[in-house]
Every structure is written in structure tokens, then in C-alpha cells.
């Protein structure tokens, strides 16, 4: 994976490069925002890690220019200002996610991994989480390359969970996927459906967790 890191604080840039490098990812670092749009056109990056407080044009303006040239690259913003944090949180500026300094390195890696996976899943024909793959067009799934038979409803729910992998999906969102489902009776039906799905996909090493009182969480099982 190739990542463009824009951070003006040299010690922190070096640290982040070290963390990402330890994941086997390659990192290009820049101290300013100005050259970023051109760099993105020149090289095929998988993600952009962008500090907001930069000398010259700041991270938000950089991001605006990046989006203006049509790039849909996953962008993770780094911020030391809560006021900006809120704006970024609203994702008005087109960031995919943000991290408030000081962040833990595992958090940085996890967010980047989730971002790139979501991005890949968005553009890919076949979704994948860990050893689980799913083809939304053909409605076919594979666990460790072994095909698994899924019902139509299981397919709908799996697709949704995989697109949101690593995040909590609320029950209401899943219930809304199934035509004709509503009210309390659908609750039991959903539990049953998810429980069947869990039995089928967990051999892939992924975890389909129940979040008590809220919904479900699909993660790759490696802590991300």
C-alpha cells in the first residue's frame, strides 16, 4: 500500500512513517499542502494522511483542492483543534475519517486499514473482509475460498455489514433492508437470520459480534 503523509512536524512525520512502514506500507512524506494535488495525479496512492495545521495552505484547503480535481482517494485527517474536528466530523470538507492528536498508533493503522478496505470494497467487484469474500452481483460468498450458500436475505445483510465492516450497524438499518419487515416481530427474525449467518461466515476468522441493545459489528477478527 502506498500512502501520502502530509505533516509539518518532522518528529511526528518520522514516527508515523515508522508505524506505517512497520505494516509493510510505503510512505511518501510532504511538509506542505501545496504540492499534494499534483503528487496525487503523478503517483497512484492508496490513501492520504493529512494534517490540518500546515504552514501555507492548511489541510482543509488542500483537501478541497484534492476533491476539486475529482480524486476519490480515502483521506484521513489529523487534527489538534477540536473546533476543526467538528467541521471535519461533519465531513463537509470531504474527509473520510479523522483522528485527533495525540492518537495511538494502532488506532491510526486500524482507521487507515478500514478506510482503504471500504474504498476497495466500494470500487471492487467483490467485497472482502479477512478471509471472507462476497460478490454482490452474483450473490455468492466464499469462506477461505470455499463457496458458502446464503439465502437472499442473508446476502443483503452480509453485503451491508461488509460495506460497514469495523463499525457498529444498528438493528434498524438491517431491518430496513428486508422488505416487509417492521415492528417487534422482525427483531426475533433478525436475531435468527444473523445467528445463521454467523455460523456460516465465522469459519473465515471474521467476528460477527452482537452489540447488546444496538446492533451488530462485523470485523476481520484481527483487532481491526
Amino acid at each position: 500500500m502506498l500512502i501520502l503523509l502530509v505533516e509539518d512536524d518532522q518528529p511526528l512525520a518520522a514516527s508515523i512513517a515508522g508505524v506505517l512502514g512497520a505494516q509493510g506500507w510505503r510512505v511518501d512524506a510532504s511538509r506542505n499542502g501545496e504540492p499534494v494535488p499534483a503528487s496525487l495525479l503523478r503517483d497512484d496512492y492508496d490513501a492520504l494522511v493529512l494534517d490540518i495545521g500546515l504552514p501555507g495552505i492548511d489541510g482543509l484547503e488542500t483537501l478541497r483542492r484534492v476533491r476539486a480535481q475529482g480524486s476519490r482517494l480515502p483521506v484521513l485527517m489529523l487534527t489538534a483543534r477540536d473546533t476543526v474536528e467538528q467541521r471535519v466530523h461533519g465531513l463537509e470538507v470531504g474527509a473520510d475519517d479523522y483522528l485527533v492528536k495525540p492518537f495511538a498508533p494502532v488506532e491510526l493503522v486500524a482507521r487507515l486499514r478500514a478506510l482503504t478496505r471500504r474504498h476497495e470494497n466500494r470500487v471492487a467487484e467483490v467485497l472482502s473482509v479477512g478471509q471472507l469474500r462476497f460478490d454482490p452481483k452474483a450473490l455468492r460468498a466464499w469462506v477461505r475460498d470455499e463457496p458458502v450458500k446464503l439465502s437472499r436475505r442473508e446476502c443483503d445483510i452480509l453485503q451491508y455489514l461488509m460495506l460497514k465492516a469495523g463499525r457498529v450497524v444498528q438493528r434498524e438499518q438491517l431491518v430496513a433492508l428486508v422488505p416487509g419487515w417492521s415492528g417487534a416481530t422482525s427483531d426475533n427474525a433478525l436475531d435468527l437470520l444473523v445467528s445463521r449467518l454467523r455460523t456460516k461466515i465465522e469459519p473465515a476468522g471474521v467476528r460477527l459480534r452482537t452489540v447488546r441493545g444496538l446492533g451488530y459489528l462485523l470485523d476481520a477478527g484481527d483487532g481491526t
Binding site: 512536524d9 518528529p11 511526528l12 514516527s15 508515523i16 515508522g18 508505524v19 512497520a22 489529523l78 489538534a80 483543534r81 485527533v100 492528536k101 495525540p102 492518537f103 495511538a104 498508533p105 494502532v106 491510526l108
Partner: peptide
């Protein structure tokens, strides 16, 4: 607090890396 955030980020990242 804001000024402390960036060096603390470095410290946090480096200490975690060192432990690993």
C-alpha cells in the same frame, strides 16, 4: 493543550513502536 498534542503524538507513537 493544543501545542502539547503534536509532541505527545510523537511520544505516544514512538513508545508504542519501541514496545513492539
Amino acid at each position: 493543550a493544543h501545542q502539547l498534542r503534536t509532541p505527545l503524538s510523537t511520544l505516544r507513537v514512538e513508545s508504542a513502536q519501541a514496545l513492539a
